[in-house]
């Protein structure tokens, strides 16, 4: 599904990713762990086309397409979803209008007609209920005044509405209490199926108790330095990065 080869990314002239390779097949869940400053968020933004993240070398191929040629919105249209570490507050835009615009934009990209208003409402109500979101929050401005947990839950509602085939979740678990973590994990697990893949970026092993990955990678100093199965995450939790011979905050 996703193939990243020798990826080099600079942000503001600073080299962050320095030759990263990653292959994710259909149906797989990969977790990326790593110390602060390793380039975890940069990887998610590079995959999802954030302006300012300059690809100086390498390739990102999604379902056989050169992904680097596509705008961020087109990547979403292709079926990629980015769960933000810090979801953005958008005053004046209601959650429901935002979601309607998003769904219909993606449908337009795929040459599908707009979703009828009634069908849309039915869908969003059922998704909100599944993820235990108060329907009143759908009327509120996107993420404005939401707690950390509510923001992450909102990311899950968006993901579930947009129904991506590939999701990158950038520290979706950070700042969550145990109940919120369970809901987020539940949202991720709902997506798991043989046709869909997930890349979970996390600081802590905690989330991986709920979302059991097929592969775990350690990202440090702009490269993947170690890969393994879920036991690697458990080892990291016990021994720390130093125990694996990885220095933190390598500039």
């Amino acid at each position: 599904m996703l193939e990243i080869k020798n990826l080099h990314v600079e942000v503001g002239g600073q080299k962050i990713l320095k030759g990263l390779n990653l292959n994710i097949n259909d149906g797989e869940v990969h977790a990326i762990m790593g110390p602060n400053g390793a380039g975890k968020s940069t990887l998610s933004y590079a995959i999802c086309g954030k302006p300012g993240y300059e690809i100086t070398e390498g390739s990102v191929t999604f379902k056989g397409k050169n992904f680097l040629e596509l705008e961020a919105s087109e990547r979403a249209g292709e079926g990629v979803f980015l769960g933000f570490q810090y979801p953005v507050e958008i005053p004046g835009v209601s959650n429901i209008n935002f979601l309607r615009a998003a769904i219909n934009s993606v449908r337009k990209y795929r040459n599908e007609g707009e979703l009828a208003a009634g069908d849309f409402l039915k869908l969003i109500r059922s998704k909100a209920a599944e993820l235990e979101m108060d329907p009143e929050m759908l009327k509120r401005a996107v993420n404005v005044g939401f707690s950390g947990g509510e923001k992450k839950r909102n990311e899950m509602v968006q993901m579930s509405m947009l129904d991506p085939i590939f999701a990158v979740l950038d520290e979706t678990d950070s700042g969550l209490d145990i109940d919120a973590l369970r809901i987020v994990a539940d949202g991720i697990n709902r997506m798991r199926c043989p046709e869909k893949s997930i890349l979970v970026i996390t600081h802590y092993q905690r989330l991986l108790d709920y979302v059991v990955p097929d592969f775990v990678h350690v990202l440090a100093n702009g490269k993947i330095v170690k890969s393994g199965d879920k036991s690697l995450a458990i080892r990291l939790e016990k021994e720390g990065y130093a125990g694996l011979g990885i220095e933190e905050n390598v500039a």
């Binding site: 999802c48 086309g49 954030k50 302006p51 705008e71 961020a72 919105s73 087109e74 990547r75 979403a76 249209g77 979803f81 980015l82 933000f84 979801p87 953005v88 507050e89 958008i90 935002f98 615009a101 998003a102 769904i103 934009s105 993606v106 990209y109 968006q158 947009l162």
Partner: peptide
């Protein structure tokens, strides 16, 4: 710019 990117990451093109 952050809000713009957030919306684009959800499928809205620049104009929308």
């Amino acid at each position: 710019a952050d809000a713009l990117y957030y919306l684009k990451s959800r499928g809205l093109d620049q104009n929308a």
